[in-house]
Design a protein around this nucleic acid. Structure first.
Length: 644
DNA sequence: GGCAGGCGCGCC
DNA sequence: AAAGGGCGCGCCTGCC
C-alpha cells in the first residue's frame, strides 16, 4: 500500500493509468467479456473497482475475481463510496481472502472526504471539488423514495447546454464533475456496449486515483499530533481506518445481529403485553396501558402529549419545567402518580419503538437484526446505526444470542474517553492515571473526593457540565489536570468564538493544519477529522450567551468523542482482520464496545486477538504516549450474560 | 396530506 | 441563576 500510494501521491495524475490500460488489465484478468463490467484492476497503481449492476457473470464469484485481481495488483483497494448509490458489490471480499495483521488496505474516497472536510456531505461532486480545490457545488437534490435515502435526483443540466458532444466526458468546462457521471458509471447504467463501459471504467479509475492522491497529500500536510510520530502519518491512518469502517458497516448489514426470536417475543410480551391481533386489539392495549396513570391524572390527559402531561401534573400539584424521566424520578414517593407514569413511559417505549412491529420489520427470517450502518456521523465521527441497533433497551439484550455452536465475545473498552483525553492533551498527571485499571481511583485520590464524585468531575469536564457537585469537583480538576483542562477549554473557546463570529484563539485545536478556503470555522480531532463549527443564526441571537455556550460544549466534547471514535474504529477494523481466519464476524459496534460472533472452538482465540489488536492499535495511534488502554472481555451465549 | 421541529427516551 | 455531548426513533403539534 505504501509504495502504491507513494507513487500516486508523488506524481499525481500524470502517473495514473489511461483507459486502454484499464481495458488491458480487465482483459488480462478475464472479466468483462460479453458481460457487464465486474472489476476494474489497474496494475502498478493498485486500484480495483467493482461495478454495481450485479453483473457477476459466468462461474466467477465476486470474491474470486477480487482475489485474482488482488494477486495481480497488490493488496490495495480503492472505491468511491461503500455506501449509498451504486455501492460496489463484493468489496467485502477485499482483504478477506488473504487477511493480514493491521488495517484492511482500502481507501473509501467519500469517507476520506468526510474526514478532511467534516459534515455529512460526500456526494461525488463534493468529493471531486474538495480534491481539486474547486468551489463546492450546490448539493444534489434528494429524491424522496420509500425510505431509501441513498437515491439522488440529478439535476439534468449541462453547464454548456449539452452541446459539448461527449456525454462520457466526466468533467465540465469549469472543471467540476458532471452531475451523475460517477453514479451512472458505478451503476453500469451508461448506455453502450462493453467497449464503452470499459472506456468509462478507465476514466473512472483515473478520476478515483486523482482524488485519492489529492486526499493523501492533504492528509500528509496535517501536522502529526502524536508525541512520537511513526512512519505512517496519523491522519493517513485515520483515513484508512475510516475506509475500513465503511467496509465494516457493510458487513454489519450483511451479517446482522443474531436474535433469538422466541426470547424477544417473550420479553416484549412481559413488558408490553401480548401481540395485538388487530387495530382494535392495539387500541385496547393502549387503553390498558394508560388506565393506571389516567386514574390519577384524569381521562382528559393525553399521555403522548408532553404539554398535556405537564398540565395534568400541575393540576395535581406537581409543577415541573418538563416531564423528563430525571425530573420524575426525583419525585418518587411524593405522589402516587409518579410511579405509574414512569412505568407507563417504559412500557410505551417497548410497545411503540421496540415492540412487535420493530421485531417484524427489522429481524429477518434468518434471525438477524439488520439496520443501516454508517462509518461516521456528521459531527465528531462516531458510527451510527438504524433499527435500534445503537439503542437497544437493556431489557431486550437477553434476546441477543449466539447461534448453536457459536459464542458471543463482548469486548468493552474501559473508560475510553478520559484515557483518550490523556493522550490527545498529553496531560502527564492524567496519563499517569491511565496506568490503573480503574482510572477514576487515582483521580479520586488526587482530587481528595470519593470515586463517584471523581467520575462526575471527569465527565463534567468533557461534557461541559458545571452545575451541582460537578461544578465544585471541576475546579479541583482544573487545578490537578491543567493540561487536559486547557485542551478542553481551548476547544470550548473555539466553539464559542465561531458561534459569535470571532476568530478562534491561537491555542485552539482548529489552528492545526492548513485551512480550507471558504469552508468556515472548524476544529480538527487528534486523528485529523474536521469538525465544522458555525456562527449563530439570526434567530439564535436572542439568547447569545446560551447559544454560544452550547457550541462551546459541543466543541469541548467533539475533540474527545471524535478522537475516541477514531481509536475505536482503528481497533475494530484490526479485530476484523483477525477474525477472518477464525470464521468470526463483528456483529455490533457500540462506540466503546464490540460484539463478535465466533465459532465456539475459536472464541478464546478471538478474545486474545481482540486484546492484542487493542495493544497494536494503541501503539500506533498513541505512539509516544505512555497512556494505557484497557479492555474487558467476556465470552457468553447471550449478550445479557456479559453485563459487568 | 406531507414535512419540520419539539419533546422524550433508548443507548454510548 | 442555570448552564451535559452524540445518535436514531416515535409521538405530537404547527405549518404549508
Amino acid at each position: 500500500m505504501i509504495s502504491a500510494s507513494r507513487r500516486a501521491g508523488a506524481t499525481g495524475a500524470s502517473d495514473a493509468t489511461d483507459a486502454s490500460e484499464a481495458v488491458a488489465a480487465l482483459r488480462a484478468a478475464g472479466v468483462g467479456r460479453g458481460s457487464p463490467v465486474s472489476v476494474v484492476a489497474v496494475p502498478g497503481v493498485g486500484v480495483a473497482l467493482a461495478f454495481g449492476d450485479g453483473g457477476w457473470s459466468g462461474a466467477r464469484e465476486p470474491a474470486a475475481v477480487l482475489a485474482e485481481a488482488e494477486a495481480a495488483v497488490g493488496p490495495r483497494w480503492v472505491w468511491w463510496s461503500a455506501h449509498g448509490f451504486g455501492a460496489p458489490p463484493g468489496i467485502e471480499a477485499a482483504g478477506a481472502g488473504a487477511p493480514r495483521p493491521g488495517l484492511p488496505l482500502c481507501w473509501d474516497l467519500a469517507a476520506v472526504h468526510r474526514v478532511l472536510w467534516g459534515g455529512h456531505r460526500d456526494d461525488p461532486a463534493a468529493v471531486w471539488a474538495g480534491a481539486r480545490g474547486l468551489p463546492v457545488p450546490p448539493p444534489p437534490r434528494r429524491r424522496r423514495t420509500d425510505g431509501q435515502l441513498d437515491l439522488l435526483a440529478f439535476v439534468d443540466e449541462d453547464p454548456d447546454g449539452g452541446r459539448a458532444g461527449d456525454a462520457d466526458e466526466p468533467l465540465g468546462p469549469d472543471g467540476q464533475l458532471r452531475p451523475g457521471w460517477v453514479e451512472e458509471t458505478l451503476r453500469g447504467a451508461a448506455a453502450g456496449g462493453v467497449e464503452l463501459r470499459l472506456a468509462r471504467a478507465g476514466r473512472f479509475a483515473r478520476l478515483a486515483l486523482e482524488v485519492m492522491a489529492a486526499q493523501e497529500r492533504a492528509l500528509r500536510a496535517l501536522p502529526d499530533p502524536r508525541a512520537r510520530p511513526t512512519r505512517l502519518p496519523l491522519a493517513v491512518l485515520t483515513a484508512r481506518a475510516e475506509s475500513a469502517a465503511e467496509l465494516l458497516a457493510r458487513e454489519l448489514w450483511r451479517d446482522g445481529l443474531p436474535v433469538h426470536r422466541p426470547t424477544a417475543e417473550a420479553t416484549i410480551a412481559a413488558l408490553a403485553g401480548p401481540r395485538p391481533r388487530d387495530g382494535a386489539g392495539e387500541a385496547a392495549a393502549r387503553r390498558a396501558r394508560d388506565a393506571p396513570v389516567l386514574r390519577h391524572l384524569g381521562e382528559s390527559v393525553d399521555l403522548r402529549n408532553p404539554a398535556s402531561v405537564r398540565a395534568g401534573l400541575r393540576a395535581v400539584g406537581i409543577d415541573l419545567p418538563d416531564t423528563r424521566q430525571g425530573r420524575l424520578t426525583a419525585l418518587r414517593g411524593t405522589h402516587p402518580v409518579i410511579e405509574p407514569l414512569l412505568a407507563w413511559r417504559k412500557a410505551e417505549r417497548i410497545a411503540t419503538t421496540y415492540g412487535y412491529r420493530w421485531l417484524d420489520s427489522h429481524v429477518g427470517a434468518d434471525g438477524r437484526l439488520r439496520g443501516q450502518w454508517r462509518g461516521s456521523d456528521g459531527a465528531a465521527g462516531r458510527m451510527t446505526a438504524a433499527a435500534g441497533l445503537h439503542n437497544l433497551p437493556a431489557d431486550l439484550r437477553v434476546a441477543v444470542a449466539a447461534e448453536p455452536g457459536h459464542r458471543l465475545v463482548r469486548a468493552d473498552l474501559g473508560q475510553i474517553e478520559p484515557r483518550v483525553l490523556a493522550v490527545v492533551s498529553g496531560d502527564p498527571e492524567l496519563v499517569a492515571a491511565t496506568r490503573q485499571d480503574d482510572l477514576y481511583a487515582p483521580v479520586a485520590a488526587r482530587l481528595g473526593v470519593d470515586r463517584p464524585t471523581a467520575k462526575i468531575a471527569v465527565l463534567a469536564a468533557m461534557y461541559g457540565q458545571t452545575t451541582g457537585a460537578a461544578g465544585q469537583a471541576l475546579r479541583q480538576m482544573r487545578a490537578t489536570y491543567p493540561v487536559a483542562l486547557a485542551y478542553l477549554d481551548a476547544a470550548d473557546a473555539a466553539g464559542r468564538a465561531a458561534a459569535l463570529g470571532q476568530a478562534p484563539g491561537a491555542a485552539a485545536p482548529s489552528e492545526r493544519g492548513p485551512g480550507l478556503p471558504g469552508a468556515g470555522p472548524s476544529l480538527r480531532t487528534f486523528g485529523g477529522r474536521r469538525v465544522p463549527l458555525r456562527a449563530l443564526a439570526a434567530d439564535e441571537e436572542a439568547d447569545l450567551g446560551r447559544a454560544s455556550a452550547a457550541w462551546g460544549r459541543f466543541a469541548r466534547n467533539a475533540v474527545v468523542q471524535g478522537a475516541a471514535a477514531e481509536l475505536f474504529k482503528a481497533w475494530a477494523v484490526t479485530v476484523r482482520q483477525e477474525l477472518v481466519p477464525l470464521g468470526g464476524v463483528i456483529v455490533l459496534c457500540l462506540h466503546d464496545e464490540l460484539l463478535l460472533h465466533v465459532p465456539a472452538e475459536h472464541a478464546e482465540q478471538a478474545a486474545r486477538a481482540t486484546r492484542s489488536a487493542l495493544a497494536a492499535t494503541a501503539r500506533h495511534w498513541a505512539a509516544g504516549s505512555r497512556a494505557r488502554f484497557v479492555v474487558d472481555i467476556a465470552i457468553v451465549r447471550r449478550w445479557s450474560d456479559a453485563k459487568a
